[in-house]
C-alpha cells in the first residue's frame, strides 16, 4: 500500500526559476496492481515516480509505504529503502556499458555482499526467465533494444523488490517488443508485484494488463 498525501515538489526553490512540478497530489496505490500514470509532457509524471521511488525527496507532503513515512528520511535510509522495495526500469535502460549482461543484472546487489555463487545463480535464473540465458556473457552494448530492456528488467528484479517502477518503458520499443513487454508486465503482476509506470503509448494505456490509470496535468491529478 502506497499512500501519498498532499505531495508538492519544487525545483530550484527560492530562486528566480523556481518551478512547482508537483502541486498537491494525493493518491492511494494498492499493492499488486499495475498502475499507469499518463498526461501531457511536463505534467510531472517522471517527477512523481522519482518521489515515490525515493530517488528524490518531496518539498512537502507525505509518502507512506506500508504505513511507514518515507518522505523525511536521510539519504542513507532512502538508499536502503530503494534497494529493498523498488526496482527501476528506465526509458534509456541505463545499462552500464562494457559490462556483461550478467554483471549488469548483478549490480544492484553488490552493496549487499552476498556470496558470489548465490548471486550469479540468481542473475542467471532471471536472465533465463527472460530468455536471455544464452546472452549472459555478452556485453550489453551488443544486445538489441528488446534484449537490453529485458536485461534492465532482470536488473530491476535482482533484489526481489515488491515494487517495479518503469518510466516510459516502451518509448524505445516497436509494437512487437512493446507487446512482449506488456506480456512480461502481466507475468510480474500475476506474481504479486506492484508496477508503477508512465506512458504516452496507447498500446500500453489501453492494454488489459494495466489495471489503473492516473492522469496528471500541471502537477495535479485530474482523474483517478
Amino acid at each position: 500500500m502506497i499512500e501519498i498525501a498532499d505531495l508538492h515538489k519544487a525545483f530550484n526553490q527560492g530562486q528566480h526559476n523556481e518551478y512547482w512540478a508537483i502541486q498537491g497530489v494525493s493518491l492511494s496505490l494498492a499493492r499488486g496492481q499495475v498502475t499507469a500514470f499518463m498526461g501531457p509532457s511536463g505534467s510531472g509524471k517522471t517527477t512523481l515516480l522519482s518521489l515515490i521511488g525515493c530517488l528524490a525527496r518531496p518539498t512537502s507532503g507525505r509518502i507512506r509505504l506500508d504505513g511507514e513515512d518515507i518522505s523525511g528520511l536521510p539519504e542513507r535510509f532512502l538508499t536502503e529503502l530503494r534497494r529493498r522495495h523498488f526496482g527501476f526500469v528506465f526509458q534509456q535502460f541505463n545499462l552500464i556499458k562494457g559490462l556483461s549482461a550478467r554483471d549488469n543484472v548483478m549490480l544492484p546487489a553488490y552493496p549487499l555482499g552476498l556470496p558470489h555463487r548465490q548471486l550469479t545463480e540468481r542473475a542467471d535464473a532471471l536472465l533465463a526467465q527472460f530468455r536471455l540465458g544464452h546472452r549472459a556473457d555478452a556485453r550489453v552494448e551488443w544486445l538489441s533494444g528488446g534484449e537490453q530492456q529485458r536485461v534492465a528488467i532482470a536488473r530491476a528484479l535482482i533484489n526481489d523488490p515488491p515494487i517495479l517502477v518503469a518510466d516510459e518503458p516502451t518509448a524505445n520499443l516497436d509494437t512487437a517488443l512493446s507487446r512482449e513487454f506488456l506480456a512480461i508486465l502481466g507475468e510480474l503482476s500475476g506474481a504479486g508485484r506492484t508496477v508503477l509506470l508512465t506512458s504516452h503509448d496507447p498500446l500500453v494505456l489501453d492494454s488489459p494488463q494495466v489495471e489503473r490509470r492516473v492522469a496528471l496535468r500541471d502537477g495535479r491529478v485530474v482523474e483517478a
Binding site: 539519504e75 538508499t79 534497494r83 528506465f90 541505463n94 552500464i96 549490480l107 553488490y110 552493496p111 533484489n159
Partner: peptide
C-alpha cells in the same frame, strides 16, 4: 554511470 549506480541502490559510500 554514478547516477545509475546510485539509482539502483548504491550508496554514496559504495
Amino acid at each position: 554511470e554514478i547516477g545509475i549506480l546510485k539509482a539502483i541502490g548504491w550508496e554514496t559510500g559504495d
